[in-house]
Design a protein around this nucleic acid. Structure first.
Length: 654
DNA sequence: AGAAAATGTCATAGC
DNA sequence: AAGCTATGACATTTT
């Protein structure tokens, strides 16, 4: 099974790469556990922790082909977009696709049993055929209802292969072809196409009659063949590479339109089991499916078909099952959904975290009572901060990177073009017209994770003591607690800015272009103290970022040097081993030469007919390969004599 | 409470 | 000249 796993891993990687080329994102790194580091690097991106990257702005900018000068890592983002656009323009023909993303960790006896009957693809009874993946997805052996599979198996068939990058897939394709020839109603291509039409009908509000028989059989085939593959003996896996290559070529040749999805195998695993557990009744599954359709469109909010539907940022993390099923739902309608999701968009969505909670389905918001969506997106709740980055705390470098990036861009871009007027979030007391030119940034657009500038309260809740602010609805904190919490979140500069009625956040002050900053200083009638404070805040803020960058570079340098030291140590050890080996070899060769010399000299005779003594003669090998007998020089004697001569010479000189 | 790590700030040099 | 960045040194905060 080890070979099978290795093969599957390699096949999965190839398949993932292929899917990534057409826009499908498959997160295999978690499964591969870092074995293939390039994928990890793709996901993680280069380390530029404190480069100010305007990721958040891309949320609203679909055609952001221009790379921020301080954000070279966005080249990958835009390159991906360009490639995807090019792929999308290649052609309009659709092809039936189905992607079943399952990771199977063990093969049960049931699977092997089922694998022996791979041809009941026309069976309407999905429960039996679908047990294999279901069992695999949930190791607890819990029987999985049909609901989730019914959703997932309306999928199109991506080149006939879902998880199959195996020999079983080849078998599957042959059978598919056979089904087509036999004009079976449940042939994969037809099923896929019909499901496509049906899904489009659903999307158009015309719910096509749901006929499970039109959807399930092909998936049964896939499942059974997949199980069959898993049950293959190791010896049958020798030619898997060939089969996989063929399958990949088939897939590649069939692809005429881009598919943009975010498919997480890990999520698929989890959600299949979870979804089944949540919706044990088949009758309850349908509403779930219908509810997830808009959820998916939310994920593609950045696409050209950005829908106002909610739940985008739940994405593959919160709604992994939806992401899996999205494969089935979206592919068919890709032609209409046009620029769906590409990898970069999902990266961006991941960065955005739950910023899009305001767009969540109203049902999900139902439990929140009277809280208005504006409050939900209020970063003061800290949810935006914590969820902005899936890994690392607020103080982690990675988080700082995101925060700095977001803030920087917003300041540089939004600030230069004028902030969206969040008038209610700006202190207006005493300085009512400041907001006309510089309104504090809404944290939904600029999340600032830095300890100092991440003070959402400063953006949305001007000073309790000195500045008017809106009442905070979500937290019934007491005044003391609230004030303490704010004080904790505010940096010293922000406290000072508050105290001096400066209507700009430290974030704004630091990141606004110098021209804007000078205009602010001159055009708002600030007192000299305020001007000094503004300049100090700006200077300290920039220096703070610089210090963070500097430390990051220093750590990187240290890490690099440590790696270099380790590498040199390894090289040194290797060279020492080689030296010892060489010395040992040389010693052995020398002994052999001595022995050969003795043997040769013993066979030679001098003028008196006596054998040559090895002590007085030796063999000398010339450059031309000829061996000559030479008398042994006595270096000890000559050396001694030489030394004596030298000593005499020295004595004479003295 | 104290140590260590992380972070902020200042001064300065260089661009 | 002004602004910005980088960085060492020190201070402060957090863990």
């Amino acid at each position: 099974m080890q070979i099978a796993k290795k093969y599957f891993t390699e096949g999965l990687i190839q398949f993932t790469i292929l899917l990534s080329l057409i826009g499908v994102r498959v997160d295999v790194d978690s499964y591969l556990n870092g074995y293939f580091t390039p994928l990890l690097e793709i996901n993680l991106g280069p380390s530029s922790a404190y480069i100010q990257t305007p990721f958040h702005s891309l949320r609203d900018t679909l055609d952001g082909y221009s790379v921020h000068p301080k954000c070279p890592e966005l080249d990958y983002f835009f390159a991906s977009r360009r490639l995807l656009d090019e792929v999308r323009t290649l052609g309009s023909p659709r092809f039936p696709t189905q992607l079943n993303a399952w990771l199977v960790h063990q093969v049960s006896a049931t699977d092997k049993t089922d694998s022996g009957q791979p041809s009941n693809s026309n069976s309407i009874d999905t429960s039996s055929g679908l047990e294999s993946p279901g069992d695999d997805a949930s190791d607890d052996g819990e029987h999985l209802p049909d609901s989730g599979q019914e959703e997932c198996q309306t999928a199109q068939h991506l080149g006939g292969q879902g998880p199959c990058s195996s020999g079983a897939c080849g078998v599957l394709k042959e059978e598919d072809d056979a089904h087509v020839k036999e004009e079976e109603p449940a042939s994969l291509s037809q099923l896929a196409h019909s499901s496509t039409l049906e899904q489009e009908g659903l999307l158009n509000g015309n719910a096509a009659p749901s006929d499970p028989a039109r959807h399930h059989p092909p998936t049964i085939d896939i499942d059974q063949h997949w199980s069959h593959f898993l049950s293959l003996p190791v010896t049958d896996l020798d030619d898997l590479d060939t089969l996989v290559t063929e399958r990949l070529l088939d897939i590649d040749s069939d692809i005429t339109s881009a598919i943009s999805q975010d498919v997480s195998l890990r999520d698929a695993m989890v959600t299949r089991a979870g979804a089944y557990g949540v919706t044990p009744e088949r009758a309850e599954a349908r509403p779930v499916v219908q509810q997830q359709a808009p959820l998916f469109r939310l994920e593609s909010i950045n696409s050209s078909h950005s829908d106002s539907s909610p739940g985008m940022t739940l994405g593959s993390a919160a709604l992994p099952f939806a992401s899996v099923c999205n494969v089935t739902r979206n592919v068919s309608s890709h032609g209409t959904l046009g620029g769906c999701l590409d990898e970069a968009v999902f990266d961006q969505i991941n960065l955005l975290g739950l910023e899009g909670l305001d767009t969540i389905d109203t049902q999900l918001l139902g439990g929140l009572g009277s809280i208005e969506p504006r409050v939900l997106e209020d970063p003061d709740s800290d949810s935006g901060l914590s969820l902005e980055s899936s890994s690392g705390g607020p103080a982690s470098p990675g988080t700082s990177e995101v925060s700095s990036s977001s803030s920087s861009y917003c300041e540089d871009e939004c600030g230069a073009t004028g902030y969206s007027s969040e008038v209610d979030s700006i202190p207006s007391k005493g300085i009512p017209d400041y907001t006309t030119t510089w309104s504090p940034v809404d944290l939904s657009e600029s999340v600032w994770h830095d300890h100092s500038y991440s003070s959402p309260a400063f953006f949305h809740q001007p000073s309790v003591a000195t500045l008017p602010h809106k009442g905070i609805k979500e937290e019934p904190l007491s005044d003391e607690e609230e004030e303490r919490a704010e004080d904790r979140e505010l940096s010293r500069d922000e406290m000072r800015a508050r105290a001096m009625y400066i209507p700009f956040s430290a974030l704004q002050i630091v990141n606004m272009p110098v021209e804007e900053f000078l205009e602010v200083l001159e055009g708002h009638g600030f007192s000299p103290e305020q001007v000094t404070l503004l300049r100090d805040i700006r200077r300290r803020g920039k220096n703070k970022l610089a210090a963070q960058n500097c430390r990051k570079r220093k750590l990187d340098a240290i890490t690099g040097l440590q790696e270099e030291v380790a590498r040199l140590h390894a090289q040194r050890d290797r060279l020492l081993r080689e030296k010892q080996l060489t010395a040992k070899t040389m010693g052995a060769v020398g002994q052999q030469i001595e022995q050969l010399t003795r043997d040769v000299l013993a066979r030679l005779r001098d003028d008196s007919g006596q054998p040559l003594s090895p002590e007085r003669f030796t063999l000398q090998c010339g450059a031309n390969g000829r061996v000559a007998v030479q008398p042994v020089r006595r270096p000890a004697v000559s050396t001694t004599a030489g030394s004596k001569t030298d000593k005499r010479k020295k004595d004479k000189k003295q």
